[in-house]
Design a protein around this nucleic acid. Structure first.
Length: 423
DNA sequence: TCTGGGGTCCTAGGACCC
DNA sequence: TCTGGGGTCCTAGGACCC
């Protein structure tokens, strides 16, 4: 059996943790640049505030109902996430961190009669140790455990936040209550197809043949989905040591950017951030892509950004920020069009290899000891003293283009000068 | 005026090989 | 009038996830 432990309204719950007065009150958290709503408590959902809805469109409703609003505070959420995952790793034999607020647990070793008690113990311990409320779904496959989790979360009173789908009867009832749109792995395209065939619930889909799914639901992906719904596990636990194959840093600007200099500053800053992530997994990138997004249309409802991108394959893979910057700056210059109004930029590191395995060519020398040491120092200082304490000059110092975060709470758990005071 | 950011996996089709 | 049969590798783009 597998379990999925999912934090309830994770970002909003983190905010509430340090402002207990908000318990029982509606809270929402915004995406970068205060653009969209990305986390809502139950009270906010009840007001009809939609997930991923633009903030400015919901502003009236938010003001009217006295909803607490926060900009995203990734220092806080990252640290709280780590605490939740560390807790789970102490409680379960095998943990796969699936996202910032969810983990799969492998429960193969747990006695079938004790699954409920065990899941409840995991839930209560996590909540006690971290203060973050979670829901637990347990079933033979990952897809079914997600079904269980969703129902546990929806009906908190009925399930007490824990639902086990063990018997065929339990599975049938749960699948009948689940619309095809709500199945993990069925998106907008898939659900449209399914509805067209008059397949409306997860139970309907479970009863389709694998051959049908293979033909109509995206080949092997569809076959796997039907199997998983039937309780036949096909999506295995992922190796916790596996590394990322791609590392991206992309951002909307806080305000439109017109100057090449500022564009280069932004891109250099993103490269520094991505290279940091790269070094954290002891990797080296063999290629970099960059893209610039402009929006030159003035008309109001004409949100039609256009994107230009470029790619450079490096002579040998590297994790040195300065080397990456040097290769990418000419690309920014080549893509830049004077007069364009830039709203976003991003860089993507690909062809990532473990840095111990970098293949140098005849004319390249391995990263010098001095450069390696420099990266080490930069990472250590920035980690200990705060992001961007040390950086390359290309990244600029003013950062007028930086994203808006007007409503960010304190980094209560990661900054000495922002700690929570208890009187 | 204002619509996020970071990933994975799969497929189709082209280029190329013998 | 007639023009093989397999493979592999790469890339772009779609779909999906949180």
């Amino acid at each position: 059996m597998k379990a999925i432990v999912d934090c309830n309204s994770f970002y909003a719950s983190c905010e509430r943790l340090f402002k207990p007065a908000l318990n029982g009150k509606p809270v929402v958290v915004l995406s970068n640049n205060d653009g969209c709503i990305v986390s809502r408590t139950d009270e906010a959902k009840a007001l009809g505030i939609q997930m991923a809805g633009p903030y400015y469109q919901n502003k009236a409703e938010i003001l009217k109902n006295n909803v607490a609003v926060f900009s995203s505070n990734y220092h806080l959420y990252g640290d709280m996430s780590k605490r939740v995952m560390d807790t789970l790793r102490l409680l379960a034999p095998e943990v796969e961190v699936y996202s910032v607020d969810e983990s799969f647990l492998d429960l193969s070793g747990i006695d079938a009669n004790k699954l409920y008690d065990y899941a409840m113990f995991v839930k209560q311990t996590t909540e006690l140790w971290t203060g973050i409320p979670v829901s637990v779904g347990v079933a033979p496959s990952k897809v079914l455990s997600k079904v269980a989790n969703r129902l546990a979360k929806k009906d908190k009173l009925g399930t007490k936040g824990v639902l086990i789908l063990q018997t065929p009867q339990q599975q049938m009832e749960a699948l009948q209550k689940t619309a095809v749109e709500d199945i993990w792995g069925v998106g907008s395209a898939g659900s449209k197809t399914l509805r067209m065939f008059n397949i409306n619930t997860a139970w309907d889909l479970r009863n389709m043949s694998e051959a049908w799914a293979g033909k109509n639901l995206g080949g092997v992906v569809g076959v796997r989905l039907v199997k998983e719904l039937n309780g036949i596990p096909c999506i295995e636990m992922k190796d916790p040591l596996s590394k990322k194959k791609m590392i991206a840093t992309t951002r909307m600007f806080g305000r439109a950017v017109f100057e090449l200099k500022e564009l280069k500053e932004a891109v250099a800053t993103y490269i520094a951030r991505a290279a940091e992530k790269l070094r954290r997994q002891s990797g080296a990138a063999g290629a970099v892509s960059i893209f610039l997004v402009s929006n030159n249309y003035q008309s109001q409802d004409h949100y039609a950004p256009s994107s230009r991108s470029a790619y450079v394959a490096l002579p040998s893979a590297t994790y040195l920020t300065n080397v990456l910057i040097a290769y990418v700056m000419p690309l920014v210059e080549a893509l830049y069009q004077k007069g364009s109004k830039y709203i976003k930029a991003g860089i993507i590191l690909t062809d990532i290899v473990p840095c111990a395995m970098v293949q140098y060519n005849l004319f390249e020398t391995p990263e010098s000891a001095a450069s390696q040491k420099l990266m080490h120092i930069i990472d250590n200082v920035n980690f200990g003293m705060g992001t961007d304490m040390l950086k390359f000059a290309t990244a600029g110092t003013k950062k007028n283009w930086k994203m808006r975060q007007e409503l960010r709470s304190n980094r209560f758990t990661t900054k000495w000068d922002e700690l929570c005071w208890v009187k």
